[in-house]
Design a protein around this nucleic acid. Structure first.
Lengths: 127, 127
DNA sequence: TTAGCACTTTGAGTTAGCTCTAAGTCAAGT
DNA sequence: ACTTGACTTAGAGCTAACTCAAAGTGCTAA
């Protein structure tokens, strides 16, 4: 039977609109249809969508995800370029984590000032 | 003398356009002007901008940052609401770090598959 | 004094990623 | 047969955050 678009939407905390948008953008070229023309997601499709969400949530643009999907469809000739994409993207994710850690320090510093009851946290007369 | 907009732009890896946009949106109501009408940033202004960039880079919308700036200008009456804002935002940053860690696992798993030379990483015939 | 450059403003345009509407199809329940 | 509800498409609309263009001002150096 497979999953309907609304079941998948619920599972992934997306809307059906968004999933159709991803499909339209070429991110889901492998989804089967029922006789009525409705999308039917298999378990393997859910794995694909999970990866797509992972890439999207780590800041990869839709267009680049689409590029990756196209490489996948092209077969083993693109194995190396796909591997390299993950290596590059991994580096960006690590950068994001570092940046987040740095920014957390700034936030914690501000919180210390607020918690200490100091009303002049930053510059003497405005913060 | 203070810093010109282009000096600040360089320092923060922003464009002068973007800084003017932030100013227009009410994020920089404290910047002084030279006789010629040009913005002159003080060291204290740079601290403000640093905090603004920190909040922006951790996903806070411009409108909410503007709200914070307005609270700051209102004085000590808003100390508690500002403190609470940082507490809430800190929680969101921690959530982002957790999500990033989870997604990194997925990426590392894919990389293992690619590195092991397996051409069928996800679902048997398409990835 | 004139050229050049960095700055100014207003307001329009761009991009990404949705988000929604309209009009319609299909299958199941009463 | 009819209603209900989930699905379909094409395409328009929306929001956030820039990004740029046009027209103009004011300092500085030759």
């Amino acid at each position: 039977m497979g999953y309907s678009i609304s079941q998948v939407a619920e599972k992934f905390d997306l809307t059906a609109h968004t999933i159709r948008y991803y499909d339209k953008e070429g991110l889901l070229p492998f989804i089967d249809r029922s006789k009525a023309g409705n999308r039917e997601f298999s378990d393997s499709d859910l794995e694909w969508l999970k990866l797509i969400c992972c890439l999207k949530n780590t800041g990869m643009p839709i267009k680049q995800i689409k590029q990756y999907i196209e490489w996948c469809l092209q077969g083993d000739d693109t194995l190396e370029v796909r591997r390299q994409m993950f290596i590059d993207h991994r580096k960006e994710v690590l950068k994001q984590m570092d940046d987040l850690k740095e920014n957390l320090k700034t936030i914690d510093y501000k919180l210390e000032l607020y918690d200490s009851g100091c009303s002049i946290p930053l510059n003497g007369n405005k913060s």
